[in-house]
Design a binder for these strands. Sequence first.
DNA 1: AGGCTAGTGACAGCGACTGACACTTCACAA
DNA 2: TTGTGAAGTGTCAGTCGCTGTCACTAGCCT
Lengths: 217, 217
Amino acid sequence: MTEHRPGPAVPAGGLRERKKQRTRDALLRAALLLFLSQGYDKTTVDEITDVVQVSQRTFFRYFANKEEVAFAVQDLVESHFVAALRARPASEGPLTAMRNAVLVAWDTVDEAISDVVPVDLYMRGYQLIESTPALLAVHLRRSTELEERIARLVADREGLDVDADPRPRVAVAAFSGVMRVTGRLWGQGQDTSVAAIRRMTEAYLDQIGPALAADWR
Amino acid sequence: MTEHRPGPAVPAGGLRERKKQRTRDALLRAALLLFLSQGYDKTTVDEITDVVQVSQRTFFRYFANKEEVAFAVQDLVESHFVAALRARPASEGPLTAMRNAVLVAWDTVDEAISDVVPVDLYMRGYQLIESTPALLAVHLRRSTELEERIARLVADREGLDVDADPRPRVAVAAFSGVMRVTGRLWGQGQDTSVAAIRRMTEAYLDQIGPALAADWR
DNA sequence: AGGCTAGTGACAGCGACTGACACTTCACAA
DNA sequence: TTGTGAAGTGTCAGTCGCTGTCACTAGCCT
C-alpha cells in the first residue's frame, strides 16, 4: 500500500503541496475581492496578505508581482480559446476558424472556469482590467504574446512557416485588433453579461469585410 | 519699447518659461541617453536628475512618471502621422488614406522631429520601447488611445458617427493590428533604419487582402 | 527517530512616487 | 524702482511595490 488511487474529494499531492495550493487560492480570491471592492490601485499587497494571514514576502513567492494575481483567471480563458481554435476542423479557413473558436469559447466559458471562480467574477475582473490603466497596459502586452501563439497555430493549420509567410500574423493581427475594440466597448457599456460580449463579438467580426472595402458608400 | 519682435534664435516666452523649457529638454535628453546606454530598468530617476543637477522632485513635476519621459518623442511622431492622415484627399477610401498616411509619415519623419532629436535617436528609442516589457505595455495602451483618435478622424472623413457605425473602429483596429506586428518584427530584425520599417509597413499592409481571404490556397 | 529541505516570517533595504513646507527668483504693477 | 505675489525648486519624511538574506518551522523520506 505504498500508493493508492486519488480519492474523489482529495486534491493531488502530499500535505505540503495541498497547503501550498490552499495558500495560493486564498491569496488569489482575497486579492480579487479586494480589487473589485476598492479598486486595484487602492489595494495594497499588505491588505491582501493581512486577509490571508501571511507575510508579504509569501505573496511575492506565489506571484511575481501585484499584477500577476489579476491575470490568473484570464489565463484560463485564453487557454480555453486556444483549445477551441485547435478543435476547429481543418476545412475551415483561418478567419472562419478563429471566428467560430471565439464564439464557441464564449458559449462554454462557464464550464471552463466555474470550478475556480464563478463566471460573474471573471467578467467583473475583466472589466476591472479594462478600466485600470496599469492593468490594461499589461493586458495588451500579454495579448500580443497570445497573438504570436495563435499565429503559429494558424500557420500550422495551413501548413505554413510563420516566418516565411506574413499572412498568418497579418490575419491574426487584424482579427485581434477587432477583438480588442470589442473588449473595450463592452467594458464601457452597461451590459456586462457574457451574452453581451458574445453578441458584440459576432457583430464586429461581421464588419471586417465591409470595413476593409475600398469604398464605404 | 515695452515689447519687441522675437529674435531669430530666442525661444518664445519670458525668462521663467525659457528656463523651464531648458530644464525639461535637459531631463528628456539625459534620460534618453541613459536609457539607451544602460537600459530603462537599470536607470534610476536619481541618475537622471544628477546629470541635470536637479532634485528628484523636480523630475516628477515635469513628467508624471519615469515612463512618460520615454514617450515624449513618440508623441511627436504620432501627431505627425495624424497630420499626414488629415492631409489625405477626401477621395481616398479609409484604408487607402491610412496606408498612404503612414508611408508619407515615414518619408518625412526626419523633418518632423530633427530639431528635437535626430531620427536615429528616435529609432533607437522605439526599439528600446519594443524590447522593454514595462515600456511596451504602456506603448500598447497609448496606441489604443491613438486608435480611438484615428477612428474618429476616419469617421469624420466619411461623414459617419463613430458610435453608430462600427466600420471606422473596425477598420482602424485591423489596420493598427497590422501596424503593431510590423513594429514588433522590425524591432526584432537587424535593419533599424527608417527605410526598413517603411518597407515592412508597405509589405505587410499589402497582405491584408490576401490574409483575410477565405481560402489561402 | 532523525536528518533533509521546502516553505515561511522577520527584517533590512532599494527605487518609484507623493505631500508638505520653506525658500528663491522672476513677473508685474504701483 | 521697488515691493508683492506667485511660479518653480529643494528638502524631508513617508508610502508602496519589490528583493535579498537568514533563521526557523514543519512535512518528507530513510
